[in-house]
């Protein structure tokens, strides 16, 4: 995009390039959160409800993985998906799918760790009640996840925040290809390197606004839901 117009002009003029970037950013990060939730919520719930040797160690490692360096995750996924890597035949490197995979790896531990904490707290409260109702293990997990759903929204938001903000992983596995794998954050990195700081800042403000908007929507949904279900 031309550098001598500000990001606000781009937004106001409905620049299709910018919208494509925003759209891809959201698609990648939201897909990653979705897949990470499908992995992280059951895994976190299972970890909350089972007792086994080494469980404490797993929890410590999981909590630590909340802070995985994106660039390291990006590099690991890069090596996996590279044509010279074990999954090279999938041909996914430098595609949005690769970016979804990398962000899923980043986000899943966050969702799993926060889910574990939430479910464990609720389990303390529900434990006897469910035992008295003779609830089996599978149904127990389902009940706790369902009843904790509004708290779990917070876990999903934390995951989304992480995904939307990171650049290290997706720039490595996506390649920042214009019109194909360029997102808000990689575009910001690029504009910064081109010295177009006003445009980079403008894009940053657009990104932050979108993140705030999504958080506000989720917050509203959570409040409405709590009003409905207590």
């Amino acid at each position: 995009m031309p550098g001598d117009v500000s990001a606000f002009d781009l937004v106001l003029s409905g620049d299709p390039g910018l919208y494509a970037i925003v759209r891809l950013s959201l698609l990648v990060s939201l897909s990653a959160v979705l897949f990470a939730a499908l992995i992280g919520v059951p895994a976190g719930a299972l970890l909350a409800l089972t007792r086994f040797r080494g469980r404490e160690a797993v929890i410590v490692v999981l909590n630590a993985m909340m802070g995985l360096p994106p660039v390291v995750v990006g590099l690991a996924i890069f090596l996996l998906l590279s044509r010279s890597g074990p999954l090279g035949s999938w041909g996914l490197l430098f595609t949005p799918q690769a970016m979804v995979i990398a962000q899923t790896v980043l986000v899943a531990p966050i969702i799993a760790a926060l889910t574990r904490q939430t479910i464990e707290d609720l389990w303390v409260e529900y434990r006897e009640e469910l035992a008295a109702m003779n609830i089996g293990p599978a149904r127990r997990v389902a009940t706790l996840v369902w009843d904790a759903r509004f708290s779990l929204v917070t876990a999903l938001l934390a995951g989304f925040g992480r995904a939307a903000a990171e650049v290290g992983a997706i720039i490595v596995v996506g390649g920042n290809i214009e019109g194909f794998t360029r997102t808000m954050t990689t575009a910001i990195a690029l504009e910064t390197s081109k010295g177009d700081l006003p445009l980079a800042i403008g894009l940053g403000i657009v990104l932050i606004s979108i993140v705030i908007l999504i958080n506000a929507l989720a917050w509203g949904a959570r409040r409405a839901g709590e009003r409905y279900a207590g």
Partner: peptide, 22 residues
């Protein structure tokens, strides 16, 4: 908000995002 149908719809959407690869 998080009923079963919307979850399925969300999964489908996520898979659709993956589809162009093929």
């Amino acid at each position: 908000m998080l009923n079963r149908r919307s979850l399925i719809a969300a999964v489908a959407l996520g898979l659709a995002a993956i589809a162009p690869a093929t």
